[in-house]
Simulated scan of single mutants.
Amino acid sequence: MIHIFKTNVETKPAIERLKSYLDQMDALAQWNFDLEDCDHILRIESKRAIGHLIINLLHENGFECQELID
């Protein structure tokens, strides 16, 4: 599954702050931020539905996050 999130993560230090949490999530195969995109997109490839977990994780770390659904 591919999940796409709109975030307010704007810097590499902010990504580094989240990296350890994201790397520890077994359900995630890959993840990356696109800071060039105006929506600061977080793309995640996962084995299952994890949208609510990612949103909670970012909120707990002081970031806004919304899953974009097509």
Rank of each mutant, 00 (worst) to 15 (best):
C65S: 06
Y21H: 14
F33T: 03
R48M: 15
V9P: 10
V9L: 01
H3Q: 11
Q24N: 13
I54L: 03
I41H: 04
D23W: 02
G51R: 06
C65P: 07
F5I: 01
A29L: 14
Q66R: 09
D23H: 02
D37C: 11
I4T: 14
P13C: 09
L57M: 12
L18T: 03
I15R: 06
W31L: 00
F5H: 02
L28G: 05
T7R: 08
S46I: 07
Q66Y: 05
M1R: 11
L57S: 10
Q30W: 09
S46K: 08
E60L: 13
V9E: 11
Q30N: 15
F5S: 03
E64N: 13
F33R: 01
W31A: 01
M25Y: 09
S20W: 12
F33I: 06
L18W: 02
I55S: 07
D39Y: 04
Q24H: 12
M1K: 10
D26Q: 10
A27Q: 13
E64F: 07
Q66N: 07
W31Q: 04
E60N: 14
S46G: 12
M25Q: 10
S46Y: 09
I15A: 00
C38V: 11
I55R: 02
E67F: 06
S46Q: 09
E45S: 13
K6G: 01
L35K: 06
L18M: 01
L58M: 08
I50C: 10
C38S: 15
G51K: 04
N8F: 06
I69Q: 12
I50Q: 06
I54R: 09
P13R: 09
L35C: 10
Q30E: 15
D26G: 12
T11H: 03
L53E: 12
S46N: 08
K47Q: 14
H40W: 04
H52C: 08
L28Y: 11
A49S: 15
